[in-house]
Design a protein around this nucleic acid. Structure first.
Lengths: 343, 343
DNA sequence: GGTAAAAGTTAACGCGCGTAAAAAAACTAT
DNA sequence: ATAGTTTTTTTACGCGCGTTAACTTTTACC
């Protein structure tokens, strides 16, 4: 252990017998110094436990090794999962990730972007709120900071977008439901916060038309991020009013479906793909809890790993390129159909 | 909008007609300058949009206005909810919260604490991993940085602990279940990661003994943070083996119960508090999704608002006091019994 | 209107580190 | 061993802001 407290790089230079500029080089990139000196430094580091002052390090740099990660709603397990993978990859690549959640509020998203700007990050991974986002604020931000969008696309913003291919999600569920029984109606929020919802509706309509079935889009009321409650209330109303046009239901996303299933249960409607069931219910996202619903939920799942890996990989490439791509990139990953008991 | 770009406080001083030291005072505490000058500054701020360099601000300060928030697992909605409230209050109080998730890994928790230390935060709100935590690392950290623990208590560490009163949770559920039917057996993970689980088992045993019922603690296998899966596998096994000693089941926490309910559903066991049901299931935590299970889950819910408010309030008080309390504080909030359909 | 207290200004230094230039030292290859 | 290359050292300055001290202007109050 250390005997004398080392408080700056100067003192550590004296203690380790390496000059300060060389130490500075080392801390910014350990591979930039000769192997023998690197070992000397690392030996000294062990006995003196010194860490450079991060504020002093960054204040005179036009760009830091920080990476911002912004998600719309951290309580949504989808983002919890994505963030975990992204953080790990950033750390492994020698960056310091900073995590922010907009908590579904536009003002908060703008605040976060403002803060982020003054952190001079090397790059930012941004999952915007979507419909609620202040487009011009995001546009201005993307001009200043190298940004990769994920999850929600906003046309033309950021240098790249990485997300899931909504058509792939919906085409698989519609095709499966139609093949194995009655074609589904489609339940969604009337005013979805997230642009993916619109893509999914369009995909549903297009698939139904291709398969020559009559489409039924059923919008339910409610705003905010409490999707389960919205799905539940919508479900209770639809079931009370006997307003479902078909005996197959496709929900826009799993959280809505979780609420809808709870309504079915309460109303005594037997959900499932087996004989004696009243209704089949399927959905999209592959929510971590979708396999614990009653019955377990048939859904089209995100390729979580690919989306997060590719988002990070794209950002690193963007940083290497100096923050600009020739052309905006868009990468969409297909879904994987997960057949369980609900449909 | 601005015409000339302002790049530091010097230039902003010239543009606004206020001297730099006064500006410095203003940015560190807007109330420390006279109202008239404050208004002049704020007017100038609007037309020039300047923000002080956060790195330069902090590098020569022994303590910053940063607050660290560390949780063991962000994908757990319990923490998602708590973090939302805490972040908001920190911002309103003029601090900059930084959010970190240990993702259930000891190494990650240690890393986070190391980083946090070099951020010189004014204070830290730490929900430790629990059993997996490196006690000595946490102890060392708490010596250097004013820290309030929450959710998981580790005896003697940090200047304060704010959490829920596990006895209150369990006594209410056990009392309710016993009064309204058969006394419950208690299902928990054999090696729980979180110390609250141990408190809950003890509370169960103590309540059962007080009520003069025979206790049945049923440990189930599995490690990690995938509680639902653990609860499900445990449930499937118990039901197959017909190993449940009673027709009332009390789960240690809601996530376990969600898995257990899915096992019951799959096995065709009718869960509920009504005639014709085979089993009653109750639990603890008031998980955001507990009301959407099938049937909806009877549970003892955290007082989320009070826990998070009081944790923040305690940290602010600690910071005011210079980072030390005379005596370690411990505050526990009681649970609220939420009677739904499962029991 | 005069005076003391409060708030602002000017001038100057320091924080810890990045970085550039010139000189010295350490390797590499012939 | 020698010349050539790479790496390290020395020296010195700058970044943007915190902070202090001495001084000047504004306010508040009788």
């Amino acid at each position: 252990m250390s005997q004398t407290k080392i408080k700056n790089m100067e003192e550590f230079a004296a203690a380790s017998g390496i000059s300060r500029p060389t130490l500075s080089k080392y801390f910014n990139d350990p591979d930039s110094v000769r192997k023998t000196t690197r070992q000397k430094i690392e030996t000294a580091l062990e006995s003196f436990d010194y860490r450079p002052n991060i504020y002093a390090m960054n204040q005179n740099r036009r760009m830091t090794k920080n990476i911002g990660i912004v998600v719309p709603y951290l309580a949504d397990q989808f983002f919890g999962e994505i963030v975990r993978v992204i953080e790990r990859r950033c750390i492994d690549a020698g960056f310091s990730p900073s995590l922010f959640s907009s908590h579904g509020e536009q003002a908060r998203e703008i605040d976060i972007l403002d803060n982020l700007r003054s952190m001079k990050p090397a790059g930012v991974l941004l999952a915007p709120l979507g419909r609620q986002s202040d487009k011009s604020a995001i546009e201005a931000f993307c001009r200043d900071v190298p940004t990769v969008l994920f999850d929600s696309n906003i046309e033309g913003m950021g240098e790249a977008f990485v997300g899931s291919d909504n058509y792939s999600f919906v085409s698989q569920t519609v095709e499966y439901l139609s093949r194995s029984g009655e074609p589904p109606c489609f339940i969604e929020m009337r005013h979805p916060a997230n642009p993916n919802a619109n893509k999914r509706r369009e995909a549903y309509l297009s698939m139904m038309s291709r398969l020559k079935f009559e489409p039924h889009v059923i919008p339910i009321e409610g705003t905010g991020w409490e999707f389960e409650e919205i799905g539940r209330q919508g479900g209770l109303k639809l079931l009370s009013d006997r307003a479902l046009p078909t005996r197959s239901v496709l929900c826009s996303n799993d959280r809505l479906a979780i609420g809808f299933l709870s309504a079915c249960y309460e109303k005594g409607v037997r959900v499932g793909r087996f004989d004696g069931c009243d209704l089949r219910v399927a959905s999209h996202d592959g929510h971590p809890l979708s396999r614990f619903t009653c019955p377990s939920l048939t859904t089209a799942g995100h390729d979580y790993a690919s989306v997060s890996e590719h988002a990070v990989e794209t950002l690193f490439r963007l940083i290497d390129r100096g923050g600009r791509f020739k052309e905006r990139e868009e990468t969409l990953f297909p879904a994987g159909l997960i057949i369980r008991n609900s449909a």
